[in-house]
Amino acid sequence: MPKLEQLEDILGTLEGFTVKENWDRFFTIRGSDNEFEWYAQWADLRGPLLAHLSKLQSQTLPLQILVPGCGVSNLSDHLYDAGFKAITNIDFSEIAVSDMLQRNACQRPGMKWQVMDMTTMQFEDESFDVVVDKGGLDALIEPEFGLKKGNQYLSDVNRVLKSGGKFVCFTWGFCDVLGLLFSNFRLGWKMGIYAMPLKPNCTKPNDLQTFMVVAEKETPSALHQITSTFTISHGNQTCSLLEALENENRVRKEYSTAGSDMAVLT
């Protein structure tokens, strides 16, 4: 079984995160018993994520959750064990889906796994209460494709989410990703950005911090300021995110105050 350090090295050699064959190779080398968490661990995500999901829980109907680009993360396992049983996971790698089915079929009956491209999802409109993305959007942003795949994906997220539903995106918050999130979730969405705790040994400038972006689908004409719960704490990454956030909120405020044509913001 390869060590996690070896898996990280393999990921570093992937020639394009949007190429299915590259991920198939990674998942094959990884093996079926070796979990891999590219972003923050469940212990760090649990509190903030469950706090948002609990607000949507119904006493009569289970919360319908979609996890696109699931890979071999244990995120869905933990969500299921926390009481959320109606989870659908999709990934374009047959190898990843097969491994996850083997790992979960007996322990977590009812959880669904499907081979599907997250940029062209085959679900009915308004099928889900929550879409939970852990690094999926980040992986779509590549120079070769520009922002096309990211826009396709977020458009589909909008389509499959129910009114009042939430898109929860765990991201490193790079400028291209933020630009996509801000432009796709302006009118008719409430948005908040939250910083996940850094590991104690993450002190180098190139150590990346995970952020949780939550966009809630509501009245189509509403335009809100984006809320945040962090300050400058970790090098250029957080500084860049705060600058992008301040610029976006300034634009939103100007259009709200002036009553300008909101169509230019979409």
Rank of each mutant, 00 (worst) to 15 (best):
K190V: 00
N184P: 00
L56G: 04
T120Q: 15
L181I: 10
V264R: 15
F185I: 09
V160H: 00
M118P: 02
G110D: 05
G16A: 06
A43D: 12
R159C: 00
A43W: 08
N201L: 08
K253A: 03
S221Y: 11
N34V: 14
R46P: 01
E126Y: 09
G179L: 00
L63K: 03
I65K: 01
A96S: 15
A195H: 08
G12Y: 07
G31F: 11
E243V: 14
K149M: 14
V97W: 10
G259D: 05
A105G: 00
E254Y: 15
N74T: 12
T219E: 13
S233W: 01
I232C: 07
N206I: 12
P109L: 11
F84I: 05
Y39L: 06
K204A: 15
T219N: 15
A105D: 01
G192T: 14
N247S: 07
S127T: 04
F36R: 07
F27E: 11
C239N: 05
S183F: 01
H224F: 13
A40H: 04
L265V: 09
S260A: 12
H52W: 14
W172M: 14
T28I: 15
N247H: 13
A43R: 07
R103Y: 09
T203E: 06
L11S: 05
S163G: 06
D99A: 05
D207E: 06
D91G: 04
D44F: 10
E218I: 11
Y39W: 04
I65A: 06
E15M: 10
V160I: 09
F167H: 07
P48D: 07
S228E: 04
G164F: 03
D91H: 05
E144K: 15
H78K: 11
P48M: 14
S76I: 01
L180Y: 09
C106Y: 06
M100N: 06
T203R: 14
D99I: 13
K134M: 02
Q114D: 02
E124T: 10
E218G: 10
P143G: 13
N151S: 10
S58H: 13
Y194N: 09
M262I: 11
F92A: 10
Y194G: 01
G164A: 01
L265F: 09
S233D: 08
N158C: 11
E37F: 08
L208M: 11
G136H: 06
R108Q: 10
G31M: 07
L49H: 07
R103F: 02
A244R: 06
S228H: 07
E15W: 13
N22D: 01
P205L: 15
L63D: 02
W189M: 04
N247Y: 11
V131W: 13
T13F: 04
N184E: 09
P48N: 08
R250F: 12
V177C: 09
L137Q: 01
G136P: 04
I232H: 14
S73E: 11
S73L: 04
R103V: 00
H78Y: 13
G259N: 06
M1V: 08
G31I: 05
D24N: 15
Q114E: 12
D24V: 04
N201E: 11
L79E: 02
L45F: 08
C202V: 03
L14F: 06
H224R: 13
F27T: 06
M191V: 05
M121I: 08
G192F: 08
Q41E: 14
M100P: 08
N247D: 09
V264N: 09
P200K: 02
R252T: 02
P220D: 07
K199R: 15
V251F: 01
R252P: 00
